[in-house]
Design a protein around this nucleic acid. Structure first.
Lengths: 170, 170
DNA sequence: TGATATTGCGCAATCA
DNA sequence: ATGATTGCGCAATATC
């Protein structure tokens, strides 16, 4: 299960015809392939003057290493490889971005969870404190030898202001 | 090993500007050469097709509006701008990466914190449960009208197996 | 209006 | 040899 975002792949070289399509309003630039995204580099004839003295420039005759077909750059295979790599790059970057996004989201989730847990802790602590107080009070009563034969304090938990502490938590 | 390449790309639509590559000769630019890095593009001027995009629809040959010097690409200012941008790009990417890293770390921290909180909750819950049991037991005793002449149960908290529950939490 | 910041993309080196 | 990663420069935008 993997969806593929396919996009226009021009497996061809434009040699002079250019398409001017550049009117994209600013807008959501999410990670969805921007239609008509930006293009850059331009087409152009191979400038490399193969032989012939470059009249002006300094060292303009890099060791001509043309092996293979008429140009290892114009090669059909080369273009193919490039295209594949470009695709791979795109994919990789997409995943990378996605991952970063996921991580960010994870942070948010964890933060939420954290708050929840802390709230729970607070609640439990409060309950505990109430019970402890009751205990202490009771202990006091015993110590003071106060019988307090009336209703047992167990059912009166409003002593410290907490309404319902003795119940299943949450 | 060094392959000279020049960016001549084109896949997808192209516009009408060209990219020229500039050489770097012996590292004179502010940016130091990257260690074992990549190659630079090849030097050479490019036959920038005059602005006119053919197809554009409106202007077949827009007046070549080269402002300023005759070459806006080989211009000194151009290179300067590029260099600045390259710098900015690097900086931006660095920060981006750093941020991602930080985010990842935050995840780890939060996870840890989470575990801690959960452990605490567990502990509190246990304490609470023990106290409740004591309460119930006590209530029972009262209900059964048992005198319980022995010591008060408050000091005996080993009933359910918990060692020290009645103390300041943490 | 100019400068920096961000983003998408292609190339090439390197990894796996 | 092939796909995945990564650093880098270019150019279009976005932001300030």
């Amino acid at each position: 299960m993997s969806e593929r975002s396919q996009q226009k792949i021009n497996t061809e070289q434009n040699r002079g015809t250019v398409s001017v399509i550049q009117s994209q309003a600013s807008g959501a630039t999410t990670t969805s392939g921007p239609p008509g995204g930006s293009l850059q580099q331009v087409p152009q004839l191979v400038p490399v003057t193969p032989a012939g003295g470059t009249g002006g420039g300094g060292k303009a005759t890099p060791p001509s290493k043309m092996k293979k077909t008429s140009g290892d750059k114009d090669s059909d295979e080369y273009r193919q490889r490039r295209e594949r790599n470009n695709l791979a790059v795109k994919k990789s970057r997409m995943r990378s971005k996605q991952k970063a996004q996921d991580t960010q989201q994870r942070v948010n989730e964890l933060k939420e969870e954290n708050e929840r847990l802390e709230a729970k802790i607070k609640l439990l602590s409060k309950e505990l404190s109430v019970l402890k107080d009751l205990f202490l009070e009771h202990a006091h009563n015993l110590a003071d030898n106060v019988q307090a034969p009336d209703s047992s304090p167990l059912l009166l938990n409003n002593r410290t202001g907490v309404s319902s502490s003795l119940s299943s938590q949450r």
